[in-house]
Simulated scan of single mutants.
Amino acid sequence: MWDFKEISDLVLEYKLALSVTLAMLILIVRRWVIKGIRRRAKRKAQDKRPVVNAIKNITNLSLVFFLLAIWSAELQHLALSIAAFVVGIVLATREYIQCFTGFLYVTSTRVFRVGDWVEVGDVCGEVVESDWLSLTLQEVYLPTYDYTGKTLNIPNNQLFTKPVRNLNFLKRYATHTFTITRNQTVNVFQFIERLHERAKKHCLHFRDVAIRYNSMIEHRLDVTIPGPDPTIRVTTSELGDTEVTITIFCPTEEAIEIEQKITSDFMAYWYATKSKAALPEPADDEVHRVNGAS
């Protein structure tokens, strides 16, 4: 039977082979586990990306820990031999240290998780993966709430220097604001009440869900947000044109569609008022869709 000293000597003698074998074993097991999790998530229609991301980070940390344990003596000698260059090494690896610190900060504070919508500086996207060095986002164009198809890799050190906003609530419901600008040949207050009723009708089919979601956001964030009923505000621009700003609290995927319907109603009322004709009764949502298709 081998004693502990013999095993230690054997490990020291075959460090390189042991390191390669251990790395391959950990990576193979990780790939097998992740593949099983993704297969089960696809079968149950569940989002397991946070679990997959956590497994990747844990296995990477374990691999580094074991490699450091195996090569600790060599690393110690190396550290002693380059003690005079420690300052230079720190300066050279400053960006990596900041990235790793940023990863620890995000992980400890739970600013976001995989699958959340976040805004870092002036870019916005859905978190796809977060590792020690960078944050990977699928870019989202906020004015239309659509994916652009671009993948963004943001170094973690920017999480310290730029504001990070969690926009996860926008994935389901958004406070969508848009402005319609026309000249002052028409007094929009003649039909603003009717336009408001039309806006409320377009939002009627999800009003109950919007009320609950609005209350949940206000309770969680401890703030008051507009909604769920539409609001309309009339102002003038610097050039003297009339600006009608409409705010709706609606499902994110329906925001642009509802904006187009309200804009269609506004234009119908505006031209009817300008020609001094009777205000039209805009078609129902079904007729809107038929007209749009034609």
Rank of each mutant, 00 (worst) to 15 (best):
N291K: 12
G227H: 02
L170T: 13
L75R: 07
V140P: 00
A293K: 13
A293D: 11
D241V: 03
D285Q: 10
F266L: 08
S134P: 00
L78T: 11
A69Q: 14
V287G: 07
C124E: 03
W2I: 09
V51A: 11
S108Y: 12
E238H: 13
E218V: 01
P228A: 03
H219R: 15
E95C: 01
A54D: 12
N57G: 11
R38M: 09
D284W: 07
T177H: 06
F191A: 02
A174Q: 01
A73N: 12
L10S: 10
I89S: 04
R110A: 11
T231W: 01
L27A: 13
L68A: 05
V127L: 00
Y141E: 15
K15Y: 03
A79W: 11
K5W: 14
L195F: 02
R43C: 00
Y141P: 05
S237T: 15
W132H: 13
N53F: 04
T247H: 05
L104E: 03
L27K: 14
T179W: 07
S108T: 14
T181K: 14
L167A: 04
A69N: 10
A84I: 15
T136F: 06
H205V: 11
E286N: 07
I232P: 00
R165I: 14
I154D: 00
L135K: 01
V114H: 02
L63F: 02
F189H: 09
S134V: 04
G240R: 04
P228W: 03
T175M: 04
W32A: 14
V20A: 11
N57W: 08
V287C: 08
I55C: 04
T59R: 07
G88P: 01
V64T: 13
L68G: 02
S275G: 02
I34Q: 12
V244L: 02
A210S: 08
A283G: 15
K42Y: 08
D208Y: 04
T224V: 13
D47W: 07
I70K: 08
N166K: 04
S72Q: 09
V244H: 00
R31E: 15
D47T: 06
I180Q: 11
E13K: 15
A255E: 05
L22S: 08
E281F: 07
L135Y: 02
C250Y: 01
E139R: 04
T148K: 03
V33A: 10
A174N: 06
N214H: 15
Q46F: 10
L80W: 14
T224S: 12
S294M: 15
E74C: 02
D208Q: 11
T21C: 11
M216W: 12
E238I: 13
F103S: 03
T231E: 13
L61D: 09
G88V: 01
N214T: 06
T151G: 01
R182M: 05
Y269W: 02
